[in-house]
Design a protein around this nucleic acid. Structure first.
Lengths: 343, 343
DNA sequence: CATTCGTACTGTATCGTTACAGTTTTGCTC
DNA sequence: GAGCAAAACTGTAACGATACAGTACGAATG
């Protein structure tokens, strides 16, 4: 608001934030020289660079972001596009923490770009493109044919997705191996003697729906089990999940094992099971994926597999930055494996 | 990176992002006039303003943030200072969602400024002050005598805190009424015939420790109950909480009621109770504060009180913005009451 | 010795915006 | 009709950084 600058415009008043001008004045060099020295340009003498760097460090110089951004277009911002709709288990926090951890060691700031997933998902992406407000973007809830991916790819905006796509575009991503998860989950249930398995799966719009299904079905086939279909998805309100599961349990042909693709869902599934008068570990077993360890605390009978979302955040952050730096996208793809509990 | 500008520097190539220059060219006015017209300055003719606004809307003009920031120092950024240490129940997500909701209707962007709460808490605040990277700041984990508050107040940086302070500085805040919470919790437990009450309280460094204690003690006195001291705090690892509670339950004088200041803690407390062979609702009752409704799902016997953190985020965002706009801090303080479940 | 070259450094213009100090036009006063 | 004020508009400089096109100067070249 009110500039407390001590009138005199020269760089002689120390409490002000140092700029290139300040350093130029102190070293007796030109502003350009200072700028290039700090960038380690080849046409600056070694000794000069040293001197400039010393003074810069001494003054605690930090380039003015607005200046850089205006001149070069580089924002030093990574945008995380977030759905702000209800979410129970703190998935988002973990993602944010992971990204923050990586960005903390860089010049990048993390900007949260919210959107409601009832609205057009392209809105935030278009905003970023139109205003040039970020150097890179991280998105989640990726779909097999994702319009956001198409748009960003087309416009050359670096990005990384949480989840894969299947549209012939090679781009950075990080994903959890949901196929391995459901596959192993089936194996674990069959090992416990369960044969009639239900699956609480993600919305069929999302990319990992297919992986989830494939692993499940291969598992069924391989280990000789049958599917008891469950109609709700992980996106449904918890009350709906509970009700569906309760109904299924009360049906004539209830499952004796259930695989659950989300931690929040698992809680509702458990409630449904208990509401129908069944007990985990006795009448039925459950394998659930979770991103925190709450489930183990509330029903140790639930077999849990851990998805390290914080690690996912770190990978995604590293991937966008690498992409911004021009690394080829095929080198920036990673899939993390399900982690079984230690015991 | 590579500017795809179509060489010719005039404003005649439409696909480029429009600037004041573009509008000036299209209206035949000067850049200054356009700038002032869009700001509704008094020295611009009404008809001109109208014309400029029309063209601006038509072009989808959005002021270049870097330009504004460089010239005026206004960043249009609100920084949320976040502890990225473990957190179980998605408290952070809710806060972020609430803030985002409010900022979405403004020019402000939300930047996450992480820090580890083992490090000096002043680091992120100093960074923001030194680099002028935000117009306003939101902090949490407020302490009664909080050095961050002192620093920001001293330097005139607008901010709002989640939690009150007690240091003679009047500043915007939003808080949950923890005193009412513990007070009512005690009443609820006594109403169930419980008299020997334990309290899982926050770290004594935090502001709401005192409120929590006061409400609890007034409650004890008013309703005639005694405290069974519990040594751990909500900040302790869940395993420690469980062990402490288990030990307490096995002691010669175990509590028959417990008040729990955090949802994550409640899960561990419950585990401790059960590990000692007791059962909620039969041998002991628990009242817990939570910011999601997980607890109701996992142990309906837990009496829960809801803290609407998302609403807290909204309040904080509105408060910082109002403070930036010069509203007096005493008008920007709010406390939200405990919400009992509907039933 | 004049020319060329390479090294090390510098000045100017520019990104988009706004503060400030004008300028022009019109209308009014005396 | 000279003088003045208000209304409406405009040009220039500046914020801090960098791209680009220089300049100065000593050393190598022919």
């Amino acid at each position: 608001m009110d500039n407390k600058k001590i009138s005199g415009s020269g760089p002689q008043s120390p409490p002000e934030r140092p700029t290139l001008k300040t350093i130029a004045f102190m070293t007796g060099l030109g502003i350009t020289t200072v700028s290039r020295a700090l960038k380690d340009a080849p046409d600056i003498g070694a000794e000069t660079k040293e001197r400039v760097r010393m003074v810069a460090r001494q003054l605690g110089y930090q380039p003015n972001r607005a200046g850089v951004r205006l001149r070069t277009g580089k924002t030093n911002v990574i945008a995380l596009v977030l759905s702000i709709d209800e979410e129970i288990m703190g998935f988002t926090s973990q993602m944010v923490f992971g990204i923050s951890e990586v960005l903390a060691g860089t010049q990048y700031h993390l900007v949260i770009t919210p959107h409601s997933h009832s609205k057009d998902p392209l809105v935030p992406v278009r905003y970023i493109l139109d205003t040039g407000s970020a150097d890179g973007v991280i998105i989640s809830r990726t779909e097999p044919d994702d319009p956001r991916v198409r748009l960003m790819d087309e416009r050359g905006l670096p990005f990384a997705t949480h989840g894969r796509t299947d549209m012939g575009i090679v781009h950075p991503f990080h994903d959890f191996d949901n196929e391995a998860f459901t596959h192993e989950a089936v194996r674990a249930l069959v090992a416990k003697g369960r044969r009639r398995l239900a699956l609480l799966q993600p919305s069929s719009k999302l990319s990992y729906y297919a992986h989830t299904r494939i692993g499940f079905q291969i598992g069924l086939h391989e280990y000789g089990a049958e599917e008891i279909p469950l109609r709700v998805t992980t996106d449904a309100p918890l009350a709906d999940i509970r009700d569906s599961v309760e109904a299924l349990m009360r049906s004539s042909h209830p499952p004796d094992g259930i695989v659950c693709s989300s931690g929040g869902g698992a809680i509702a599934v458990n409630a449904g099971i208990e509401a129908a008068g069944f007990r985990l570990g006795r009448d039925i077993d459950m394998v659930a994926k979770q991103s925190t360890d709450v489930l183990n605390w509330i029903r140790p009978e639930i077999i849990t597999i851990y998805e390290d979302v914080r690690h996912g955040g770190r990978e995604l952050a590293k991937a966008v930055i690498a992409r911004i730096d021009g690394i080829e996208p095929e080198l920036l793809q990673s899939i993390s494996s399900p982690v079984w509990p230690k015991s």
